[in-house]
Design a protein around this nucleic acid. Structure first.
Ligand SMILES: [Mn+2]
Ligand SMILES: [Mn+2]
Ligand SMILES: [Zn+2]
Ligand SMILES: [Zn+2]
Lengths: 130, 130
DNA sequence: ATATATTTGCAACAATATTGCATTAATAAA
DNA sequence: TTTATTAATGCAATATTGTTGCAAATATAT
């Protein structure tokens, strides 16, 4: 099997996720790491982290794609069934690990993954708007 | 106020949505309309239709963005609270107008819109795989 | 220290989306 | 119907995001 290695760039990416309370885009990550490694390297690191179930990908209504570190510990079956919140004001995306939608599907669909993103105004922006 | 006009291109785009049972990407729409108008025009028409609550945008985890005509009639408050299904096999995206997730949000979030996309295998692909 | 396979940088490419500006065309007013 | 107004369009240029091939660098096991 193909083993995954711990490199300087990968460690740096993980540290950035650790520090951040919100999901990050490739561009945002690269801004912090343009001295450490190439653009392409970050794409490849993110791919690996997703493959290893360490990071998950979130796509926003406006088409932007962000990444966040998984906070839930690794269960046997790793599913990202929690919601994300996307603030229309500050554009930050936050994992809502405790918000899990319930729903009833029609027959004959095989669901592998769900992507549940709510958008609106986040608490931070609501407060500063008083 | 800025009024919106009915043009040949806009009518053509709407007709394509009318015919289609699935959501369509900009590229798919342009393939049918490359004799009618420019690429850019289609982007602008889609923007207007979204603004007028006639079309809604669906962005997929793989980065693809699709559009679908709203089938629910215009209520006072127009919310796209239905789910979408994205087939991993044929890549078609279908509106599931009857699937509406229920969920409990933490306080202090103002939710304006939701994006609930499930991915997996659609009925058509499940059947042809027997 | 050496071997091996993963990871990286770089450059090139591809796909998707946006912008400015002159021209065209839809709609309202005369 | 003709004219005036302004939204909509075409086109070319530019921006943004993501992918690929390949040689060189580096992490890990032996
Ligand atoms: Mn997760
Ligand atoms: Mn709708
Ligand atoms: Zn905010
Ligand atoms: Zn399918």
């Amino acid at each position: 099997m193909k083993t995954t290695r711990n490199t300087t760039a990968k460690t740096a990416v993980l540290e950035i996720f650790e520090k951040s309370t919100t999901a990050l885009s490739h561009t945002e990550i690269y801004k912090e790491l343009h001295d450490v490694c190439d653009r392409v390297t970050i794409y490849r690191i993110l791919d690996r982290l997703i493959n290893d179930d360490i990071v998950h990908k979130i796509s926003n209504l406006d088409g932007t794609v962000k990444y966040a570190k998984c906070n839930h510990s690794h269960q046997k079956v790793h599913i990202h069934n929690h919601a994300h919140f996307s603030c229309e004001n500050c554009n930050e995306i936050t994992c809502l690990e405790n918000v899990k939608p319930s729903y009833i599907m029609p027959h004959n669909y095989k669901v592998n993954e769900i992507n549940f993103t709510l958008s609106g105004i986040c608490p931070k922006c609501l407060n500063s708007n008083i």
